[in-house]
Design a protein around this nucleic acid. Structure first.
Lengths: 170, 170
DNA sequence: GCGTTTGATTTGAACATTCAAGTCCATGTT
DNA sequence: AACATGGACTTGAATGTTCAAATCAAACGC
């Protein structure tokens, strides 16, 4: 491996950069599986399915067109379609036609789905607290968030625009 | 450590906390797939397979017992076994018995494997730079790393001990 | 010595995700 | 009117991951 540390051509990281990157790399592999595990264990849902339910419940009447929902939940149309099929089979969601004129399909949260989410949410949030929010100082958490927003602007610009819509004043 | 009003009973996040968490949640879903995509596209490997090769190449003779390798690469024994089977099929790795007395199986990096890695690494590092290292100030990167280390201590204590062996003084 | 337990690894089936078609239908085009 | 075009999903097959069971050999207990 090249051990140079120049800017553009030779791409290696400095020891300091490498150390931070290893920390982040470990974070992005272990945190998702920890959260997945909790949800799976306590609610029988995976993170994506949970996220789909959350997005639905955040919407006016729990009704969202598939294509919009896919963007919100940050998954491909296909992934969403499969997930909605599973959620439908479980009775948490239904498919229906959008309003007239809009001939897309929409997913709707059922009562059972809303209940399921209300049941699952506290445990999930508790886990987020336990693993992330409660172990960092407010300053650390803010710095983490800032860095995350900058990175997401690179990894998924469209998502960044949608998700971080409410920018803080600065 | 942050000590917000409640620790166990009332689990919801404050708006500020929620905002930072959403940013992080988006990071941990989009960054892995961005990196996966680059590796898959340019080298035909997924992140885990790549990571396995890296860990092997970092080791004395490219030889590591399966169980140790699983910990280093942060995957289950089963996941590693399947991955090594694929890498073996591709000619990048071989299985062999450990030294006498130790009756475990070890994975060994082949010449082809080492070459593959040397070929794949620059593109991967370039992507890490492009998405993460080069878009943050050194201070931001350091803060991100610090927060990541704290979180990883929660999500995977054993891994934290192994990976962050060389702690900085302060 | 013989049967059991334990640790390390592998295997196979179930499930999730991706990827590349396939379907359906409305809207242009000629 | 007939036909291609494009959007919005859905589907099925291929691939990867998980989970539980199977293997296999050394170590232990009696």
């Amino acid at each position: 491996m090249a051990r140079e540390a120049s800017t553009d051509d030779v791409p290696w990281l400095t020891p300091a950069q490498l150390e931070e990157w290893v920390a982040l790399a470990t974070l992005i592999t272990t945190l998702p599986s920890a959260l997945d595990a909790q949800l799976k264990r306590d609610a029988g849902l995976n993170s994506f399915e949970y996220h789909v339910l959350v997005r639905l419940s955040d919407s006016p009447h729990g009704v969202v067109p598939m294509s919009d929902l896919a963007v919100m939940a940050q998954g491909s149309p296909s992934r969403l379609s499969h997930a909605v099929t599973r959620l439908e089979r479980a009775g948490y969601v239904e498919r229906m036609a959008c309003k007239e004129a809009d001939r897309r399909t929409a997913a709707v949260l059922t009562e059972a789905g809303r209940k399921k989410l209300e049941e699952a949410a506290p445990g999930h949030v508790r886990e987020v607290r336990r693993l992330v929010v409660d172990v960092l100082t407010p300053e650390q958490l803010a710095a983490l968030g800032d860095a995350a927003r900058v990175i997401v602007k690179m990894t998924a610009p469209e998502v960044a625009d949608v998700i971080f819509s409410r920018k803080r004043p600065g």
